[in-house]
Amino acid sequence: MPPSAAPTPRDRTMLYDFLFAPFADYGFMRRALAGCLALSFGGCPLGILLVLRRMSLMGDAMSHAILPGAAIGFLVAGLSLVAMTIGGIVTGLTVALLAGLVSRATPLREDASFAAFYLISLGLGVLIVSMRGSNMDLLHVLFGTVLALDDAALVLIVSIATITLVALAVIYRPLILECLDPGFLRAVGGQGAIGLGPVIHMGFIALVVLNLVGGFQALGTLMVVGLIMLPAVSARFWSRNVPGQMAAAVLFGAIASIAGLLASYHWSAPASSSIILAAGGIYILSVIAGRFDSIAASAIQLRHRTG
C-alpha cells in the first residue's frame, strides 16, 4: 500500500500503534517530542545541581520571575517568540542578580531574597497580564503549547540545550567545588574583585533562567520547572555520584516526555500536565523502589555482614 494512505489497524500490531504510530504519523508529535527531549537534556542536569545546592525551590521562584518579562514582550510585540524570550531572560536575570546582590550585601539569605524578588515580579506580571484582560494566547504562555511548536521555537529550545550542556561541561569543576566546599574555592579561587565563586554561581543561575525561558514555549512557565526538578529529585535514588545522577535524570526526563505525550495523544489529556504527571509517577516510583535509600531499599532486611 502507498505510505501516504491512512493506516488500517490490521497492518500494525497494537504495540506499534500505541508507542510509535503517534510520532510516526504526525509531525506535531515529533516536534513536541524533539522539544521535550532537548529540554530534558539541558534542564535535568541543571535540576541535579539545584538539588545539590539546596535550591530545589529556586526553579519555581525563577519561573514566576520570568513571567512579567514574557508578559511585557507579549504586550509590546504580540505573540512573538523573540520578544517574549528576551523579556523573560531580562526579568529572570534581573531578579537573580538583585537577589544575589542583596544576599551578599546584607545578612538576608539568598533564598529569602529570591522569595522577595520573585513575589514582586509575580505581582508585576499579573498586573501586566490583567491590563489586556483575559487572553487565550497568554494562557498558552502560562501553560504551554507543546503540541504547536513551530520551527523557531524548536530551534530556540535545542540551541539552549546545546549551550547549557557545553557551558555545564566548562564550569563543572568549580561548580561542584562551590557546592561541596565553598570555603575551599574562596581560598584557592583567587582574590579578584569578585572572586570565582560568585561568577560561577551567577553563570549557573543564568543557565537555569535560559532553560526556564526555553521551556515556557513548550510546557509553560509554570510546568517547565516540573521537567527540570522531578527527574532530578528522582535520580537521587538511583545513583550515588553526580554524573550518574545527571544521566539518570536525563533518562527519566526523556521517559516522562514520551509517556506524557503518548498519554496526551491517546486520552486527549493536556500535554504539559501529562508530561509532568509522568515525571511525578517516576518520582513516586523512585521514592518507593529506588536503588539507594528508597523505602523498599531500607525495608529489605538482609542479614548483616561480618565487617
Binding site: I176, V242, G244
Partner: peptide, 18 residues
C-alpha cells in the same frame, strides 16, 4: 593562594554524592 585551609568538618556537606 599558596595557603591550604582545613575547614571545620561541620562546614562541609558530608552527604554530597562524590
Amino acid at each position: 593562594r599558596d595557603i591550604a585551609y582545613l575547614p571545620q568538618i561541620s562546614e562541609l556537606d558530608r552527604t554530597f554524592p562524590i
